[in-house]
Design a protein around this nucleic acid. Structure first.
Lengths: 206, 206
DNA sequence: TGCAACACTGACTGACCAGTCAATCGACCC
DNA sequence: GGGTCGATTGACTGGTCAGTCAGTGTTGCA
């Protein structure tokens, strides 16, 4: 594929993000995507085999980056709290960088588990598993208490973040830089506090 | 409307829950609902003005019960932790009692904020606001620390629960009684620990 | 017994839209 | 200057389905 062709493909993907974010996957037409991209209807099918495959592509492109980020963080030498903060930061930065794409991924894939989530369930679970692994290691080290299962901790952590993002996505007031940073702090602060072990003196380590 | 007619209406609503849970709102046909209920296609339109209105009815029936439960809890004399436990318990019991209905509400309305969530956004926000009010009062009393905004606390609390439910909904292994109770404990335990104020001796009150 | 009023039926229609395809364009090479 | 091949176009088709409606049961009341 020539460079020009690759750019056309990208053009269609970017247009799809805007259209999906604005109208939703189920309510938009393929012709809306073509119009938004400024290309002919048929060209969409030259680069993608179906409307669904466009969404799949958008999701996988981003999710794979996130899985890599989680895996890298897991393998680092940071404290468990710092690892979770890195991951929360990554997700929030993804929103900061491209809120429309995050809206599409969350609303149309992650939360729409019936339709596309089922296709990508393994990929999605992989992310929880990565977070759970961090918690499990922290428990083995004694840094986190063991009453909470790592699987639950991962769901609470990810669920909190996704809920905050969902709030932003459908809020009428725009979100400022300050909100993004504050949210990151509060997520990590709240969840980690719920997970850390008591230290000898009865104080939290956080 | 006669009693018999009311029962037919109910029959259609219950059938719709099963069909929406099995096939999803967007992928099912109105004829699927009629077939499942064992009534003629046209009868569905005798009781409901559209496919959408069936979903609206199902959502509002249940959500209003939950809003009432939250309001009642908020007005009670329980400790903040006990209040949150009551609400978590209510939601988890709703799942226990009718997992298919909860699946429909979460997957097709709450999380599908694009399509139906927008219609019901105020109703959904009302629930967060109720939880946030409990947290705000606990902060004013000094029971919860004030670094975490009540709005964020509500999102983290509700988001954790919804994520756990979503996990169950799409899990292949069925969920047992034990899982339900343990989840309730872990949610309240984790989130409250993240929210409580330090006591004078440096120990948590939870 | 008759006649409203409502419950109920299911064939039909009109709109919609994903995906196809035959035709044109244009870049690059020989 | 002609041939090849991918890029590009957009009219068209085939299937789907929400919602309509004209008609048939059924109930209960005068």
């Amino acid at each position: 594929m020539t460079t020009a062709a690759t750019e056309k493909r990208r053009l269609i993907l970017d247009a799809a993000v805007r259209v999906f974010a604005r109208q939703g996957f189920h309510t938009c037409r393929v012709s809306d995507i073509a119009d938004e991209a400024g290309v002919a209807y048929g060209l969409v099918y030259h680069y993608f085999s179906s409307k669904e495959q466009i969404l799949d592509t958008l999701f996988l492109e981003r999710w794979d980056v996130m899985l890599a980020a989680i895996a890298e963080t897991d393998g680092s030498v940071l404290s468990p709290e710092a690892k979770l903060e890195t991951i929360a930061g990554f997700i929030i930065d993804s929103y900061r960088h491209d809120p429309e794409l995050m809206k599409v991924i969350i609303v149309e894939v992650t939360r729409a588990a019936n339709t596309f989530g089922l296709t990508h369930l393994d990929k999605i679970r992989h992310a929880y598993a990565g977070i759970a692994a961090i918690v499990a290691r922290a428990q083995a080290d004694g840094a986190f208490r063991s009453e909470i299962t790592p699987e639950f901790a991962a769901q609470a952590f990810y669920g909190s973040i996704e809920q905050v993002l969902t709030g932003w996505i459908f809020e009428s007031v725009p979100v400022g830089e300050h909100d993004l940073e504050r949210a990151k702090t509060m997520i990590v602060d709240t969840i980690c506090r719920g997970l850390v072990a008591h230290t000898a003196g009865g104080r939290e380590s956080a």
